[in-house]
Design a protein around this nucleic acid. Structure first.
Lengths: 112, 112
DNA sequence: CTCTCTTATCGTATATTTACGATATACGCT
DNA sequence: AGCGTATATCGTAAATATACGATAAGAGAG
């Protein structure tokens, strides 16, 4: 990306952008929904549901782990993944705060 | 991206992911905040606020326009940008719906 | 008409993302 | 120990994103 200048922005903006980045692919959306739906931690069932190769799913899971939204534990030969409630709540709070602030400031009328 | 397979996912997942993608850069977050803050449509003032070159800002504005969150009109030598209230509300609705559905399904306890 | 100012677009370089196959790793089981 | 299953990682390829400078396009001022 030609040298991303994320460090020049406010921390809160970068933080929200990073969370948004984690949601910026339908596969990761689907993974989160699947993890939430089956409350018991799932492992490779995700691969069967998604139209992607196993290695690609593993990469998306890693992206979500790095964003903090998902936790993963290696439980023997099969890994256990689940949503991190605290981090997800943090993301939800930031996102809603952002959305509401914008919605409050922008009237429903169009200006141009 | 090695041939993005977004067409293989559900439309709602792709739709939300696309909106998230628009928010996935601090510069675009900052632009939206700036546009909301100064309710009158701004043009080049955005460039002065952001630590980016004019052409880069123009590109980010275009990204937001393609996502539908921002509208732009060419008003003579200076362009007029503003948030599209309807599209923003649509994004807000999808995002909140997603977040709430996950939060409802995931208990506050950790499973792994 | 020309000059100037503002914005968009083009060209380009580099970084990152997405994706897959192949391989390595880790564990349970026999 | 050896086998089979499940997951992670490596290597690689192609698409996209980010960024900037340079240039083009548009409108108003003189």
């Amino acid at each position: 990306m030609g040298a991303s200048k994320k460090e020049k922005f406010e921390a809160s903006q970068t933080r929200l952008a990073d969370f948004a980045r984690a949601l910026a692919h339908p596969a990761r959306i689907a993974i989160i929904q699947k993890l939430a739906e089956s409350k018991t931690c799932i492992c490779g069932e995700i691969v069967e549901v998604l139209p992607l190769a196993q290695s690609t799913v593993s990469q998306h899971l890693n992206d979500l782990k790095e964003a903090g939204l998902v936790r993963g534990e290696v439980d023997g030969p099969r890994s256990c993944y689940c949503i991190d409630p605290e981090r997800f709540a943090e993301m939800a709070g930031l996102m809603k705060e952002f959305i509401d602030a914008i919605a409050r400031a922008v009237p429903s009328k169009k200006c141009c």
